[in-house]
Each structure stands twice: as C-alpha cells, then as structure tokens.
Design a binder for these strands. Sequence first.
DNA 1: TCATTTTACTTGCAAAATGCAAGTTAAAAA
DNA 2: TTTTTAACTTGCATTTTGCAAGTAAAATGA
Lengths: 168, 168
Amino acid sequence: MAKKKPSTKWRSGCPLNASVEILGDRWSLLIIRDMVLRGFRSYKEFLESYEGIATNILADRLQKLMAHGIISSQPDPLDGRKLIYSLTAKGIDLAPVLTEMVLWAAAHEETENPGLVRQIKMDKKQFLAAARRRWTESVRNDRRMLEVTKEDERVSRENRAGDIKSLV
Amino acid sequence: MAKKKPSTKWRSGCPLNASVEILGDRWSLLIIRDMVLRGFRSYKEFLESYEGIATNILADRLQKLMAHGIISSQPDPLDGRKLIYSLTAKGIDLAPVLTEMVLWAAAHEETENPGLVRQIKMDKKQFLAAARRRWTESVRNDRRMLEVTKEDERVSRENRAGDIKSLV
DNA sequence: TCATTTTACTTGCAAAATGCAAGTTAAAAA
DNA sequence: TTTTTAACTTGCATTTTGCAAGTAAAATGA
C-alpha cells in the first residue's frame, strides 16, 4: 500500500520527533488540510489554495508525502494530464492533529473561518467521524471508477481486436 | 501577559495556517514537548535533549516562542546565570496537539517510548489533566519563589541601609 | 581572592531549503 | 491543428539551518 519506507533513521526515537521530522515544515499540513477538509485532489487545486505555495515546493512536498505513505496518486481515467492524489489511512489519521491545531490557533490568534471552529468545538468526535466518512466514500468511489475504467479498456481492447480481424 | 504580538500578517486567515506558521519547523514543538512532558526549563536542559539542537537555533526558537507568547522567562533567583523558561497558558494549551502527534507517529512509524503512548491511549483526558496540573503547580511554585526572593531582597536592602547608617 | 567552570548566549561561515520566474512536456479542447 | 491546460522542472537569488568557535557574566573551588 505505502509507496516506500523512508530510511527510518530519526534524530531520536520519540514519536513526537518522528511527527515533527515528517510534518514539521510550513506546507505539508496545509496540503493535508486541503485534502481532509476541502476534498482537494489535484496539483492545480493545491496550487490555487489560499496560501500560495510555489510550484517546485508543491511538487517536492507531494513527493515527500507519498514517500512517507501519507498520500498516494493515480492517473485520472477521465483526463490523462491529471493525477488524482488520495489520502491513505495514515493520511486521514492526521485529522485529529489538524483539528487540535485549528482549535489552538483559533483560541490564541486572530483567525478566520469561525464556522469551522464552531463545528469542531460543538462536537469534535462527530466532526472527525464526518471527515473519515467522506474519506471512506472517496476511497470506495475511486475503486468503483477504477473498475469502470478497466471495463472500458477491456471493451476497447476487444474493439481493436475486432478492427484488426476485420482488416485481415 | 503575552510579551508582544507578532506582526499578525498571516499568509491566510485559516487557523491551521497560523499554527503552521508559528510551529511549523523541526524544533519548536520539541522544545514545547520538553517543557510539557519533561519539565525542562533551562537553555542547558533543552540543549542536552535527545535530538541535539544547535545553540544558535535554540536561542532563536526560544526568542520566537517568547515573541509568540508561548513561553516566558525570568532570571533564576538562585543562580544569576540562569534564565527559567515557563510555559504560558497559550503554551500549555499545546498539549493536545502534542498528544495527537505522538499518537499518530506511534501508530504509523517505528518509535520508542511505548510507556508514554500507552498512558495517552489508556486515558487521554486524564493524561492531559495531569500535564495541566503539573503546569499549574509550577506556576504557583514560581510565584511563591518570587515572593521569597523579594522578601530576601527587602531584608538585604535593610541590612545595607543598616551598614551605611553604622558608617555615619 | 583569583583562576576555573558553568550558563546562556553570539558570530562566522558553509550547506541546505525556500521562493520566484521562466521554461517544458504530454494531453485535452477549440 | 493550433491553443490551452495540467503537472511538473530548471535556474538562480534569498533565507534558514547547522556546525564550530568564540564571549560575557555569574558561580565555584582552592
């Protein structure tokens, strides 16, 4: 499932340190946020998000998140130029980290999006359950789409075979 | 209470972005961890922690954490070379962020300190309550120590005054 | 009391990460 | 079949990080 294990050689064995080494930069968690909370799935969407990430940094972060097994990618069957990025189970498990960081900043800094904050405060568990449900749905949906695509390919292969036969 | 407001000019108003701009580096949260979980309070202790932070980076991070009102510092009344760093309320409020990051890494990476992880998993609320209790205690204790020191100074001032009088 | 040690830094410099602008390539749309 | 679009890559300047070596003030030891 995971793409590749990064050379698990942490500065220390402390679990917090592992988190910080993987996620401790100014962009990774924002990409995760866009996926968990806003359902973003493509390079273009991430690029056009609020904070304005640079193209090379985005490409680098997507690669690293994949290397850490937090996201995965597949070609879009409907548009060959696109890659569809998905959260893995490891990725959606970051939702509680996100929500706590949102609550902390909302409590101590001047921030926007009071609707989001209110929702989390009102019922954190339900908020997380909803996020996970959306994720489960999208995984199911991707699988379905993949099957349809495979079927399409099978049919088109048969058609080509038919064409060739008709040429003989 | 807070030292100074940093020029609140975020890349975006999203609360998660604020958190990431303040805490999104490879060291800040480790310093907070050392304070919340291990009770560290001096430059030297932070310096000797597991991950081996460089002296200049540590000085820089301590300054930034102070500028953000996450920690504060006071001279050690028992040793004039030392500064005692303390978590502010804003600082101790980061405990839930820490615990979620610990749980995430423990679930998905090879890490050590299973005792800590077991404790958090067993009863997260109680774990956080204990961390906060330790913090409240240390705040109370600091205040007490400060008063004792002030009394000492008053006495020593009187003694000096007495000495001067005795010289006249 | 006077040299030594300790604490909390600073400074200088090399290496790595970040950010911006300008390509590039393959696929889709007009 | 020309033009757009999506997802990058490249080059280069700026910033951040990390290491090693100071420094100043206070405490400690002889």
